[in-house]
Design a protein around this nucleic acid. Structure first.
Lengths: 206, 206
DNA sequence: AGGGTTGTAGGCAGTATTGCCTAGGTAACA
DNA sequence: TGTTACCTAGGCAATACTGCCTACAACCCT
């Protein structure tokens, strides 16, 4: 499996911290990208690059918390680690509740940050792994035609009425035609039973 | 549906806070139970009573964090709200990561605590609801005999090989006997298709 | 105009499932 | 020693599914 390159994104309005962190992380072999504000980061981020976001909590303009909330809405492969000079308990509570993996008060020891970054990378690797599997499965379903998908939907919605007769009645077509579609569906999804199709589809859609 | 009585458990070594909170909460109609230490709470808690645990973070003996961790291991219907005099950011981060719904610094406004207690109650009501449904479904599966459960397991594990012949071969019994068991299974689970059984079983076990 | 895709539908043979019947063996239990 | 529950397994008939074939109409694209 090709290992995806993970990046540490550093977003902090404090120039000294940015350069210190960047240099230190690069020296340790990390791919680093730093920005002086949330807006600048967002401009260069496409929603697909993966890694850790080391994020200052209190910045002029869009705050770290706002950026985190915005990213959470995009469901992107980033683990957020807050670093803050003045944040307190309520701020940290909200950040963690919103999904940050940690909230460090400046000054912090680099060793702690490095450890958190590694933890974040692990998390993201796992997330990407899961995501990849889901995409593979979704790709199979995408090959179905509209009618075929409709039939899968009927079966998923109501697994107690999956006979050709019942589905045919629901869709107003001949049971024989349902047989036909079902055969295509099993073939396209590379599965051997309707039960398997339903199990997979449910797993995907929740 | 009978509404389950939710309790606010107050655990704090500070006598004044205990009495003030208890009185205030009781006045508002809450069922309150207070303890001066984690051990005392645990002695009286059976793992089933539901509600909110308003928990002091720093107590002599077992700390609030330790109590929370212990309760988390029991998967009990309690929403934990920390209150603390001296805790800081790292403590609050750990508490939230462990599943606390909030972390309030003393002194806090009662209105805030009340709001959080209500949020906790909502959460717990939802959890109980989900739990009830799961138990109902599990109760159906419990009526299966060992052999029947084994057959369900085979079908769940490998939904692409659910024909009587295949399962019979795996279990070393006649396909005809598998037919028999399957019929019993569908009858006992009140379902109409193998696909339905698999979908439900998967949903239950993850 | 021709070719590909999709949805529709039927025939036919082989296989699978289902419901309803019987029936023997074993183990637990009163 | 019965009784009960469970696992086993077969017969038989009705129903359903599967795989292979054909066929036609609608639509889109070239």
């Amino acid at each position: 499996m090709t290992e995806i390159e993970l990046t540490v994104f550093v977003v902090d309005d404090d120039h000294d911290i940015r350069t210190a962190l960047s240099r230190s992380l690069r020296k340790r072999g990390y791919q680093v990208e730093s920005h002086d504000c949330a807006e600048s980061f967002l401009q260069g981020y496409d929603g697909r690059r993966a890694g850790c976001l080391v994020l200052d909590y209190g910045m002029p303009g869009m705050t770290g918390l706002e950026l985190q909330a915005h990213l959470a809405g995009m469901d992107c492969p980033l683990a957020v680690i807050f670093i803050t000079g003045h944040g307190g308990v309520p701020e940290s509570v909200q950040a963690i509740k919103q999904g940050a993996i940690d909230f460090l008060e400046k000054p912090f020891r680099q060793a702690v940050l490095l450890e958190r970054i590694e933890a974040g990378f692990d998390l993201i690797r796992q997330k990407l792994q899961t995501c990849r599997k889901e995409r593979q499965a979704a790709a199979l379903f995408d090959r179905l035609t509209a009618r075929e998908r409709e039939i899968v939907d009927r079966m998923v919605e109501n697994p107690s009425a999956i006979s050709s007769k019942e589905i045919g009645a629901r869709l107003g077509i001949s049971p024989r035609t349902v047989d036909h579609h079902r055969a295509r569906i099993l073939e396209k999804l590379q599965m051997k039973s309707v039960a398997e199709v339903i199990a997979h589809a449910r797993h995907q859609r929740g």
